[in-house]
Structures are given as structure tokens and as C-alpha cells.
Amino acid sequence: MSGIHDLEQLIRVHPFSQGMSDEHINMLKGCAKNVCFRQGAFLFKEGEDAETFYWIRTGKVAMELHAPPKGTIQIDSRTAGDALGWSWIVEPYRWFCDARAVEEVRALTFNGVCLRGKFDQDPRLAHEMYRRFVPLIHRSLQATQLQLLDVYGAN
């Protein structure tokens, strides 16, 4: 396969893989797929088994919670260059919210079960991935705490 459509190349150009060794990129490739979601399609839904995660190449994903009687609320979003989903690392591996393509989304998807298996074979790969996911989780938690403060609300 040629150029940008080569899976390995797509992994390499994504910001999330920066600094990863060839060996680990190769291991990731074995669990990866190149996918596309039409506008409005769901990447995953709350409560489902979290067996994947995504590296977004183009497009935008809204993370949503259905909260009657308020309706469905967007709580976060992800765009090109972002990684989406960490429930695949944390037991019981279940999605906390819905993820919906707000516009057409092209992404790499990784099979978490496959990758967790590789972590057991090569703990250095696990370390590489945690090193990338933990700051993401950290930032997301901080952002959530700021959102909770409702900083733009009237005093």
C-alpha cells in the first residue's frame, strides 16, 4: 500500500505516536484499523464494552451524556490530532458516555483487548501508552473541575 494510506504511516504522523520506537509502532499496527464515521454516527455508546480507542485524523467528535429532563448534553469534544477513549485501560472496560461524529470523522482505531495482551508481553509498550494516556486523563480531569466551577456564570 502507498503513501498516507499506509497504516504504519498513518500511525507515525499522528501526534500521539511522537517519540515512539519502530518496534512499538509495529506492535500498535497489529491492533489498528483505519476507520471513517459519517456525520451523526456513534463511535461508541455509554455502557457498552470499551474495547477500542481512537486517534482522530480529521473531523470532530462530541462526547455526550443523556441527562433527562435536560436532554442530551455535550460535555467535551475531540478533534484532529486528539486521542479519544481511555476506558479500555481501566476495569471494568465500559464507556462512560456517548461519542458522536459531529462531522465526518477519519480515525485510527485500536483494539484494546489486543493491546492489553501485548502489554503483558512487553511492559515497555504499556509504559509508553500510559505515559501518553495519563496526561490526557489528568488534563481532562482538570478541565472538568474548571467546567464545574462555571467560571463564566454571574457571581
Binding site: G71, T72, I73, I75, T79, G81, A143, Q147
Partner: peptide
Amino acid sequence: IDHAATDWYGDVGVVTALLGK
């Protein structure tokens, strides 16, 4: 924006998240 209904097509989150890009 901090949060939105489903008819919002823009980014959701805190403004500092935009600085990274």
C-alpha cells in the same frame, strides 16, 4: 463552550484546551 445541546457543532471544553493547538 463549557457544555451544549446536540445542535452545537463547535468545540466543547475549557478555553485553555485550545492553547495546545
